[in-house]
Design a protein around this nucleic acid. Structure first.
Length: 279
DNA sequence: AATACTACCTGCGTGC
DNA sequence: TGCACGCAGGTAGTAT
């Protein structure tokens, strides 16, 4: 489900609802959701832990516990719901964290792609998935100079390059299409053919679009009641994602959709022109 | 090392 | 209605 703005919105919701809660028990209905340790140890180690804080790095949530860091990735469709223990357990619920006050944090995931990992306290940065991440998409962390140097070295199309999280973290299929549109760059333009000017614009638009989406509480596409972080309204600000067949907000041309690196890709054929041999 | 493709899952809409 | 197929906000593993 989520890209950085949605995960950040979930983080804020969790901070509000479960910070300070003590874990009394854990129920696991789909053990593969637990990447490590094995689901039995995962449960045993969590009992008695208190949720001290909830951090985020890229699209990962990091629950800071008494003796552990619990890393959570929602992948495509993972979501958290906060419930009373007496509430009926809905379909697609795979993990339940039961608190000492008889409330529960439930993890639901239709496609079961999401993962949990438990590591010793303050060692989350060693986890492989977090280690590979590039800088957060902020002015302070994401530097134009480094971005430009990396792009010069890569010849793969810019869209899949931005999706791999190593140059900058947080973009997914929605915001990468929005960033490229706003910067006027074709999604298949090879990274090493981008001009200095285009790179600077792209850098600025990535930071801007993700920042605006965080402010809006993320984008809500499919609505699921009760899920933390589903109240975002950035979908009203999307300029190309899901807009195929509509008019380009800049020039009026028809927004097209095509496959790029196995992902549905939305773009304006007039504002985002592919050019051969540049840079 | 960089790149490309596939697996992991379920549900929904479309077309025959 | 039934069924096959493509598609969905992501990443890790494998092969080249």
């Amino acid at each position: 489900m989520p890209e950085l703005p949605e995960v950040e919105t979930v983080r804020k919701g969790l901070e509000h609802l479960v910070k300070g809660k003590k874990i009394k028990d854990v129920a696991i209905f789909w053990p593969k959701i637990i990447e490590s340790p094995n689901s039995e140890d995962f449960k045993t180690q969590l009992v008695g832990e208190e949720i001290l804080d909830i951090d985020r790095r890229g699209k990962y949530l990091i629950f800071k516990l008494t003796h552990f860091d619990m890393i959570s990735h929602l992948r495509m469709e993972g979501k958290f719901e906060y419930h009373k223990g007496s509430d009926p357990v809905m379909k697609h619920t795979h993990v339940i964290f039961k608190f000492s006050d008889e409330t529960e944090l439930r993890y639901l995931d239709v496609r079961k792609f999401g993962r949990f990992v438990l590591v010793p306290k303050d060692t989350s940065q060693i986890y492989k998935g977090l280690q590979k991440l590039g800088p957060e998409p902020t002015e302070e962390a994401f530097l134009l100079k480094g971005f430009e140097q990396e792009l010069k070295k890569r010849k793969k199309p810019i869209k899949p390059l931005l999706l791999d999280q190593t140059l900058v973290t947080g973009l997914g299929n929605i915001y990468v299409d929005e960033s490229l549109f706003r910067a006027g760059i074709h999604p298949e333009q090879e990274a090493n053919t981008l001009t200095k000017k285009e790179i600077a614009l792209l850098h600025r638009e990535i930071i801007a679009v993700l920042g605006e989406a965080v402010e809006a509480g993320g984008t809500t596409i499919r609505t699921y009641q009760n899920a933390l972080g589903d109240a975002g309204n950035f979908q009203v600000s999307l300029m190309v994602y899901g807009q195929n067949g509509e008019s380009c907000p800049k020039c009026g041309a028809e927004i097209l959709k095509k496959k790029v690196a196995q992902r549905g890709t939305h773009y304006c054929p007039h504002c985002q022109i592919y050019r051969v041999r540049r840079g």
